[in-house]
Amino acid sequence: MRQIDEDKQRDFEAAAFRRLLRHLRERTDVQNIDLMNLAGFCRNCLANWYREAAEAEGTALSKDEAREIVYGMPYDDWRARYQLEASDAQKAAFGQNQPKDH
C-alpha cells in the first residue's frame, strides 16, 4: 500500500467524512432504520462517534450538538420533516440485525 503522511491521511479522511455527511443530508429518503438494517450504523451512530472523538480530544459536545453536526439541522427538525414510521418488516429486521453496542 502506498504510504501517505499522517496530515494528508487526516485531510483525506475528513474530506470523505464531509462528503458522507452531504450525501446523507441529501438522501433524506433513506431512513436510519434502513441504514442500521443494511450497514449496522446510522446517522445517530455517526453523531455518537463524532462526539466520542471530540471528547477524546477534550472537547465536550452534547448528544444534540453532535446530531446537529451530522444532520445539518436540529435532530427534532429532521425527524419532523423526514422520519417515517418504521414498518413491521423494518422493525423485525432491526431486532435481528441490531449491533450489540446499540
Rank of each mutant, 00 (worst) to 15 (best):
E26S: 09
R27T: 03
T28Y: 12
T28Q: 11
T28H: 14
D29F: 03
D29I: 02
D29E: 10
V30A: 04
V30P: 00
Q31F: 06
Q31I: 06
N32C: 04
N32E: 06
N32F: 03
I33E: 03
I33L: 05
D34H: 11
D34C: 13
D34T: 15
L35G: 01
L35D: 00
M36E: 04
N37L: 01
N37E: 01
L38P: 01
L38E: 15
G40E: 03
F41W: 12
C42Q: 02
C42I: 01
C42S: 07
R43P: 00
N44Q: 14
N44T: 11
C45Q: 07
L46Y: 01
A47G: 05
N48Q: 12
W49H: 07
Y50A: 06
Y50C: 06
R51I: 00
R51S: 02
R51Q: 02
R51C: 00
A53I: 10
A53S: 13
A54H: 14
A54E: 11
A54P: 01
E55I: 11
E55C: 09
A56E: 08
A56D: 11
G58F: 07
T59P: 00
A60R: 13
L61Y: 01
L61W: 03
L61K: 01
S62C: 03
K63L: 14
D64I: 13
E65L: 04
A66V: 02
A66G: 02
R67D: 07
E68P: 03
E68Y: 03
I69K: 08
I69Q: 07
V70E: 00
M73S: 06
M73T: 06
M73V: 06
M73N: 06
M73E: 10
P74I: 08
Y75G: 09
D76L: 13
D76H: 14
D77Y: 12
W78C: 05
W78P: 01
W78H: 05
R79I: 08
R79M: 12
A80Y: 07
A80E: 11
R81Q: 13
R81A: 08
Y82T: 05
Y82N: 05
Y82F: 14
Q83L: 13
Q83K: 15
Q83H: 14
L84G: 12
L84R: 15
L84I: 12
E85W: 09
E85P: 07
E85I: 11
A86R: 12
A86D: 11
A86Q: 11
S87T: 10
S87V: 06
A89F: 10
Q90W: 04
Q90L: 05
Q90T: 04
Q90C: 05
Q90F: 02
K91E: 14
A92D: 09
A92N: 10
A92M: 10
A93R: 13
A93F: 09
F94I: 07
F94L: 13
G95I: 15
N97T: 13
Q98M: 15
Q98I: 15
K100S: 13
